[in-house]
Design a protein around this nucleic acid. Sequence first.
DNA 1: GATAATATGTTGTGTGAAATTACAATTGCC
DNA 2: GGCAATTGTAATTTCACACAACATATTATC
Lengths: 399, 399
Amino acid sequence: MKDLNLLVSSPRKIRQSNEIAALQALHRARRLSRADLARVLNLNRSSSGHIIAELTAAGLVREVREERAARPNYSRAGRPGVMLELVPDAMFFLGIEIGVEHITATEIDLGASSIRTRTVAFDGPAHSVDDALRHAIALACSDIPPARMALCEGLGISIPAQLTLDGTVHFAPLLGWKDVNLTEIAERHLPRSVPVRVENDANAFAIGAAYNDTAIHSGVTLFVVMESGVGSGILVDGKLFRGGHGLAGEIGHLHVDGEPGKGRSLEQIVGLASILAEYRRVTGRAAATFEEFLSDVHDRAPQAVTIAEEWARTLAFALVQTCRIIDAGRIVLGGSVARLYPLVAARLSAHMLAAQSSSFPLPAIQLNAETNFGPAFGAACLMHQRYLSLESHRFLDDD
Amino acid sequence: MKDLNLLVSSPRKIRQSNEIAALQALHRARRLSRADLARVLNLNRSSSGHIIAELTAAGLVREVREERAARPNYSRAGRPGVMLELVPDAMFFLGIEIGVEHITATEIDLGASSIRTRTVAFDGPAHSVDDALRHAIALACSDIPPARMALCEGLGISIPAQLTLDGTVHFAPLLGWKDVNLTEIAERHLPRSVPVRVENDANAFAIGAAYNDTAIHSGVTLFVVMESGVGSGILVDGKLFRGGHGLAGEIGHLHVDGEPGKGRSLEQIVGLASILAEYRRVTGRAAATFEEFLSDVHDRAPQAVTIAEEWARTLAFALVQTCRIIDAGRIVLGGSVARLYPLVAARLSAHMLAAQSSSFPLPAIQLNAETNFGPAFGAACLMHQRYLSLESHRFLDDD
DNA sequence: GATAATATGTTGTGTGAAATTACAATTGCC
DNA sequence: GGCAATTGTAATTTCACACAACATATTATC
């Protein structure tokens, strides 16, 4: 039923979907000539020209006035093409992350570049849903003059919660929320009607970390976020895999040892809180920090190394289990705890190799170094992605 | 790069994709009038008429001459529409399953109805890849006269093996094959050039079990096949989720108890071989059958019940772990061991409920009763599905 | 039973978008 | 400078769909 409607029908819709394809292509390649675009999209040069004309008139695309010396490379024979690029300021997208201790708001442009990010402390559990959203939206919109607000094409919200597919909070243990429709509430607090989407924080992080990395756009990638809690997001060809209820990737509660009934969860061993608790216990220093722990591991202090070894062993086990099910081609580790990874990368690999039957291909593991890419950025990217798809506001006038 | 080409459309491609959508709609609904089709596809009646005319001329669709008494229901006012249906005999698809002990070949028509199925004993490990495929293809094609062979629009092959995405056997422990490109070999043995696709047996089973069940077409469904080995296939909106290397759903080797390093795999507790071995051990009857075991469980013989309880407990644990990752909305149990499920359904549910955190929705569990739907049928369905998609041979003349 | 209302299928016409073709413009290479 | 190669644009053609009009077939209503 739903596949069928996605198929394009009327002439006008052809142009719309081709325009979207052109925007996507320009986003990925940053710069293309009309002829380049025609090749990428398998279109005629003339059609490409018409599409560009329409997008230029709409203010989304412009010719880049290039310094003549700027391209000594690619000196093919023939008339050189005029390069085109997206107009970054044509619009912007907002992303906010409502965390347990803070709220972050970010703003990205049409090129998916971060314009600015702001974070404030916020005691999440102490506030109602309504208060939290009002604070967050105020933070995001505060410095934006009304005229500019008209260029906002979407607001993404990231929440540490289990969400159903329609943006309703199913259960948010960390915030104490339950069964609230965030989309509805957010729309009430917005100065202007804007598309809103809510997403789990791990999923949002995954989108953000992958969004400007063209290599990740194909295949299956697992993004693991390790803070106090542990979550993950699964990306298939650059698109989020949400599962039947939007809860896919909730690996924090995987059982990783002991009998099925008892045993501990991944989060209870790999999470920040557990590591710190254990490190403080063995060192006897109740105020020891994660930085000190990392430093100790680096210096090969036995007590810290033991903790790190169990961390690596447990994480390896969970990753192998997960890959048996989704067969990820790549794993990206993020969150503050991920800084432990470079210190024990070899151990992690060894444990994974041991747990894996030899014939099963091991995924590549990467560290997400960009601390800048948080859930807020990812939530904004989600709206950027939405704009560059058939759901886009601009193309839904009729129907 | 690959998304873009699917988005782009030209007049001719519109017609193609609309024809495909029409075929899909007719396949799902079995019978539609031109006006019905127009509504389903969001097209004008006249366009619908044109599309049907083209498909009728191609011999894929026909008007059903209806007995007048056949529709006392749906007696709306107005001129009744002429019902349309796919022409089953317009083409057919072959599916073969190469197992460890047998080869099955099946043939389905354009309506995805099974025409005939044949099975012969075959000692897989004793034969070379080449021999096995020659046998299998001969079995599938033996009774088909050359003239009819021209109507064959695809051959699907199911193998108990890990396959890469391009149809190469990565590793087939049960058959002793390794690193063979089955597609290539199969094409050599075919009497005529025909699209070929190779698929893991669990994945093929999943496709087949779901293919004619219209209700399953949306959401995430996990199909678990339990024989001597245990495998599974994941279906997302009716389409197979293959993972990064085509190995998604290999849950047979999930660790289900003990410490990460040691512990047993799901297969070693839930698989047929293990159940039988344990049952024979505790009863002392070395020739005891699975039927006898089922009968004992039914009669609540303590020894058998103990085995069944561990089966339920272990399976529940594995299913919960899997659903934490992919968040399946539904689980379908198949394979001969699945017959144990109805006897311990309540226990399985209880164990799943206990293992699941209360906020996590439990998937619905179903038994796949149709023993007829084997991997061979699924492999054929895979080709049927392929024909009803943009990859279809019929629509790739140009380019 | 006649008429109205409703729905279907077909035909002709118009429109929009892309393909095709042709051509001017711009560069590199000889 | 001549030639090949490439780009961008304009005119024309082709194609598929939407729309409107109409004949047709059936039910509902008086």
